[in-house]
Every structure is written in C-alpha cells, then in structure tokens.
C-alpha cells in the first residue's frame, strides 16, 4: 500500500526528504495522506498550507495545491485561501514553534472565528531546524541549546488553548499510534469548522540528544508510556493523573462556520 500512497500523493522526484534519520515527521505525513485517501477527496480540491520549520517542509513533498508561507503565518494565509474559495479543503501543517510561539495569535483568532481549516501541529518539543532552542511546548526542566541547565518556563497545553479559543474539534495523538492520527485527521477534515489536531512526534537529533532520550525507536516507545487515552484517563483516580498526557478526541462542538456566516450576510443584501 505504501508505494500506492507515495506514488499518488507525493512529488516522488523530491524524495528522499530533508528530515533527519528517525524523525517522526515522515510517519505523520504519511498518516495524513492516508486520511485524505480514505476520504476520497479530489486531489485538486485539497490545499495544504505550511509555515516555517522542519514540519513545514512537508508541503514541498506533497502533490496537492500547496503553499509554503512565512514563519507563523500559515493560518493567516489559509484563512485567505478558504475565504477566496470556500470549496477547498484547507489543511494547515505547522510545528510547535510556528503555531504556538510566533503564530500563536493567528491560532487563537482562527479558532475564535471557527473557520473550516484543519490545523495539524507536529509537536516535537523543540525548534529543530534552527538548532535545538527550547520552544513553548518544551516540558519544564528539559534541556535545549538555549536552556542548557533546564527550561524554567511552564509548557503550553495547545489543545486546551485551542479549545478555549473556540475550536470545534480538538484532538491529540502520537507517532506511536499511527492509525489514530489517520482517524483524527479524517474527523478533522469532516468537521465543518476549525479543527485542531496536535501530534506528538520525535526529534532524536536535538530534543532526544539534549535530554538523553535514546534512539528514534526508543523515543517513539516512550511516547506510548507517557500518554493515556482520554477514556482511561477519566476513570483514573486523581492521584494517578499526574504527569500523564491525554490523547484521543478531547473536544467536539457544533457552531456556525465562518465562511457560511459571511455568505449569509452577503446574501441578505
């Protein structure tokens, strides 16, 4: 099946990709492409937008309508694309630094408007491309190039942020559970409104090396150990809930979509 997905949806002449050996981004990208294939979407009606960073290189390898934009502004460009052509399925691929740090403002306002964009955040806990600086999602105490004695900042829970800002589909998964990513991306694209999917991935080159997390395969297995499904989490007693990251579908809501609302306003004249 892989060669089918790769040949149909990838710009194969650009492979092998730029990502380091063991980087989880390639696994996540294939899971996203599989979700689009499962939904039988027309390749020409999908637009993938990305910002700057390791994960954002993904658009270069995909054979959809793709836009590689400026740092943090992927959601701003995507809003414009969706507004100009509401028939498109707009998917935003972004990293934790791109989405939560420089693009944090665009994230909360896109969520507030509930515009029909599926945002997929590749969260590798660090700025990989620029050399391993700590990001807003680096866990407290963990090391980066700019935090050699451990990061003192509290880390951001991006799913809580998106939920509070008004996203209508919020979920989280890891590169350990690849099929879960596919399922969540399918749900996210089907959801008429702002969908936010955070995917915990691995950066063995910087995050793994700085924090002595072992090799790529060990890092992926660790992701399984530190996460817990939302259904199991709800049944846990309070004292056992600490230090666990909840995965699964975290929030769903129904609210009028932004371009539809705008269309209604225009038609009222």
């Amino acid at each position: 099946m892989t060669n089918y997905l790769i040949e149909k949806y990838y710009r194969t002449e650009r492979l092998p990709h730029i990502w380091c050996p063991g980087c989880g981004n390639g696994i996540v990208l294939k899971a996203i492409v599989k979700a689009i294939d499962n939904l039988n979407l027309n390749q020409n009606e999908v637009c993938v937008v990305s910002g700057i960073g390791c994960s954002s290189r993904a658009t270069g390898y995909l054979d959809f309508n793709t836009v590689h934009t400026t740092h943090g502004r992927a959601l701003a460009f995507a809003t414009g694309i969706k507004f100009a052509n509401p028939k498109l399925h707009v998917v935003v691929i972004t990293g934790d630094g791109d989405c939560a740090a420089i693009g944090g403002n665009h994230l909360i306002h896109a969520a507030r408007r509930n515009i029909d964009i599926t945002t997929i955040v590749f969260n590798n806990n660090i700025y990989g491309m620029t050399g391993g600086q700590y990001s807003p999602t680096t866990p407290t105490g963990d090391k980066g190039t700019t935090a050699p004695y451990g990061n003192i900042d509290p880390n951001f829970d991006l799913c809580e942020l998106a939920k509070s800002a008004g996203a209508t589909y919020v979920s989280r998964s890891t590169v350990y559970g690849v099929n879960m990513i596919t399922k969540q991306v399918e749900e996210g694209i089907k959801n008429k409104g702002f969908s936010f999917i955070e995917i915990l991935t691995t950066c063995p080159t910087y995050y793994g090396r700085k924090n002595k997390k072992g090799n790529a395969a060990e890092m992926i297995k660790q992701l399984n150990e530190i996460t817990i499904n939302v259904n199991a989490y709800n049944n846990l007693p309070q004292e056992k809930r600490e230090n666990k990251i909840v995965i699964g579908e975290l929030y769903k809501d129904i609210r009028e979509e932004y371009t539809e609302k705008y269309d209604r306003l225009i038609k009222s004249f």
Partner: peptide
Amino acid sequence: CELRCPDYAIYLG
C-alpha cells in the same frame, strides 16, 4: 515496519 518507516523505504509487496 511499513507503518512506522519515516522515509517510505520499506513496504509489503
């Protein structure tokens, strides 16, 4: 192996 290969280098034929 195919499911988690980040480089699309191995697959079942």
